[in-house]
Write a protein that binds this DNA or RNA. Structure first.
Lengths: 253, 253
DNA sequence: CGCGCAGTTGAAAGTTTTCAAATGCAGTGG
DNA sequence: CCACTGCATTTGAAAACTTTCAACTGCGCG
């Protein structure tokens, strides 16, 4: 899905934007045009509006895999526990994004999903979705698409971690959040981080202290303003440059 | 697919193992049991045995996405070029593994695929595959599965890069290759690395020199023997320990 | 036989982590 | 309404790991 952190472009929704599903976010998570009957079947399938409190789990790693979940509001983090018992954050999910796609090949969830703040989600039972998908080609296509995007997102994160400095990683995360907020018609320059520094560091492969130092540095350089979780991106272009100008472009000829 | 480097377990093939496809590797890449008619349709679909020379491309990033490819022999690397013009290796693919799953949501390939050594691949036109998948539920399920596995693999790589030292990353890669060779009934303890140190470093987010030093260190400790690309894993348990004992387990109570 | 690329090795430089400690902020109970 | 406790965040300084730069060795191919 969309912790495609390294991608600056606002990940345009793939499909057609004419869905008639009731949920106002469906154009983000299931933007397919289908006929009345199919819509009904989809709506029957999806259980809308389950509410989750901050810190509560939507599902836990190793528990039986049954459903995907679409985030309606709030923010979710996914994580798994490594062999040596450490938590590893694998993604942050915002409204319109879908959780669980990495577990469709196993009987159990390959990670846990926990609410970073009060949230609500739609449940999509997977086996029924598969059945429906084989009857509605565009739906099948859409889910191949979503999974493919999830792979690409993960690849980009991998690249970010493998080659980029702390500043580049954090600039990337900020830009990713920014563009994802914009997709929801929210401000892309001023928002509240749904997650603590700790999770940011964990996700980006950095020590908390490093995250904090980079925020401070960015603030001192006038790139952003931070007040706890509140962030204002003061100079997006500069942030983009940080991500792009990996090597400082001092190469003429 | 399978650069699920951090996973020590030999990633069991998900499906049923009764495929009657002619290709001897089909139990690795498309292990589904289908009826005669469906097999015929699958075989019509798949163009077998395209040969690629070392250094040749199977497809290039940004070129139109049409097909997935299953590796029959040889080894393939996938990579993409970052904004600053650097190459980033995103995966190594061995026989029985499938390339291109990360591109199914776009019109063009999201990475390039190049042969590390003389190789042969089967081409699987994607749009036809989708059509067939909507008629054969197990096939649809299998491809959801493959993609999900690809996501998990990428996640594991991400974790490896985000939290592990150079030694842990390389031990992981060696174990991953080992288990994947074993899947093909080859030796899991003695094999030839299909890729140069350079690509290993690139893939694992390490400088070539670091890769070299770690190999040397491992050899001095008696964990492995290396002679250029030839590797013998002398003490697999110790390698596993290196990957697992991230934190050295000196924590009683 | 020599060129050139792949791999190895050493030493210095740079980032990030780790350890320690201080500060801020929030919810709880008095 | 304030003090208190606990967690999140920030900061400083030293330690650790990896990279970078340089130089050398080895091997394959023309």
């Amino acid at each position: 899905m969309s912790e495609k952190i390294a991608a600056i472009d606002p990940q345009p929704t793939t499909g057609i934007n004419q869905s008639c599903l009731q949920c106002s976010l469906s154009n983000l998570c299931i933007p397919i045009a289908v006929n009345k009957d199919e819509i009904d079947r989809l709506e029957d399938l999806i259980k809308q509006g389950k509410t989750i409190n901050r810190g509560d789990h939507i599902f836990k790693e190793h528990s039986p895999f049954k459903s995907l979940f679409a985030v309606r509001s709030g923010a979710i983090k996914t994580y798994s526990v490594t062999e040596d018992g450490e938590e590893q954050v694998t993604g942050f999910y915002l409204p319109g994004e879908i959780i669980g796609l990495d577990s469709t090949n196993t009987d159990s969830y390959s990670c846990s999903a926990k609410a970073l703040e009060r949230a609500s989600v739609c449940e999509i039972p997977f086996s029924q979705l598969e059945t429906l998908a084989s009857k509605i080609p565009t739906l099948q296509h859409h889910f191949f698409s979503l999974m493919s995007k999830e792979i690409q997102g993960s690849r980009q994160l991998t690249m970010l971690l493998s080659k980029n400095t702390a500043e580049e990683r954090i600039a990337s995360l900020l830009l990713s959040l920014s563009s994802r907020f914009k997709l929801r018609k929210l401000s892309g320059t001023s928002f509240r981080l749904p997650m603590p520094r700790n999770d940011i560091g964990n996700y980006l492969g950095l020590a908390v202290e490093t995250v904090s130092r980079v925020f401070t540095r960015f603030q001192k350089s006038g790139l952003i303003s931070v007040q706890g979780r509140e962030v204002v991106l003061e100079d997006i272009d500069a942030l983009v440059d940080i991500v792009k100008n990996h090597s400082k472009c001092i190469n003429p000829k």
